[in-house]
């Protein structure tokens, strides 16, 4: 490896400068150049399709509805993607930033982008778009995969039925927001293990813990406003007019679900941004 004879060009100020579009490109290259992150992106449709296929194949044992039901179909089609997808996306979100701290990449990243916040913003944009796209593939794929299975019993539901399209898109956006929640937690804690444990606690354990607590109105309200409850709401079609949000009845509309999930994800992202902006890297 002889490098002695190689000299370098004299310094010439070039036109290149730091731009947000460049930071976006940088984050996309990072996300797609690691086996672990690509694996997690692929795992969302993989788990989503597998669970839908398994449910579709065992439709008869599940107790069929008397007639074609949008609610029944959506339950079968979205549960795999939403349930597994929220956890996979949350873990991916944590990894995207905390692995930079564990590997030391964050140093190179922040030296290139010393304003710091645009790094987090670019990560959020790239992560949300790729994860949501991945979940869209999972959800529409699941619908297409199980359509013939439903058709066998004459209970198939087309995409044009009211609420179906919105529920599938809502489910995908929810999985995308779970990734943002993970990103915020990762930026806040900076450690892979602590971040993963926290994101699983917020998404999965919080509702379980709340459900075993004495059912006071406060506990019920918190439960209704939890991240995973928002996911249920976003991936369902409203079948009656229950309004926007009715805590007394325990009703959360899809629109309220979008808002609640966005607030959860946004709150953690802001906390992560504050930690990133302040103090030492």
């Amino acid at each position: 490896m002889s490098t002695l004879e190689k000299s370098r060009a004299t310094f010439v100020p070039g036109p290149d400068r730091l731009r947000f579009s460049g930071v976006l490109r940088s984050e996309f290259i990072k996300l797609t150049s690691l086996r672990s992150t690509i694996g997690l992106l692929l795992a969302i449709p993989l788990f989503g399709l597998a669970v839908s296929a398994a449910l579709g194949l065992t439709l008869e044992d599940a107790g069929l509805p008397g007639q074609a039901s949008v609610g029944f179909m959506l339950d079968q089609v979205t549960i795999g993607t939403v349930l597994f997808g929220q956890l996979i996306a949350g873990v991916l979100g944590v990894l995207v930033i905390s692995s930079e701290y564990s590997s030391g990449t964050i140093q190179s990243t922040l030296i290139a982008v010393p304003t710091r916040l645009s790094v987090l913003a670019a990560k959020a944009v790239v992560l949300f778009l790729t994860v949501t796209a991945s979940a869209l593939v999972a959800l529409f794929g699941s619908w297409a995969l199980t359509y013939p299975m439903f058709e066998r019993f004459g209970i198939e539901i087309g995409l044009s039925e009211p609420g179906v399209l919105m529920a599938l898109v809502g489910g995908a956006v929810y999985v995308g927001l779970s990734a943002i929640l993970g990103l915020g937690i990762g930026a806040l804690l900076r450690a892979v293990a602590a971040g993963v444990a926290t994101v699983i606690s917020v998404i999965l354990l919080l509702p379980i813990v709340l459900s075993v607590l004495p059912a006071s109105q406060l506990v019920r309200n918190v439960h209704l406003l939890s991240m995973s409850k928002a996911g249920d709401a976003m991936s369902s079609a409203a079948e009656f007019d229950g309004g926007f949000l009715n805590l007394a009845n325990g009703y959360v509309s899809s629109a309220a679900g979008w808002l609640v999930a966005a607030v959860w994800a946004g709150a953690f992202l802001v906390l992560g941004a504050i930690r990133l902006r302040r103090g030492d890297a």
């Binding site: 036109p15 290149d16 400068r17 730091l18 731009r19 460049g22 930071v23 490109r25 940088s26 984050e27 290259i29 990072k30 150049s33 990449t105 190179s108 990243t109 290139a112 982008v113």
Partner: peptide, 10 residues
């Protein structure tokens, strides 16, 4: 790794 860092500055 280098490509990702370079991309920030075009």
């Amino acid at each position: 790794h280098l490509l990702a860092i370079a991309a920030t500055h075009g």
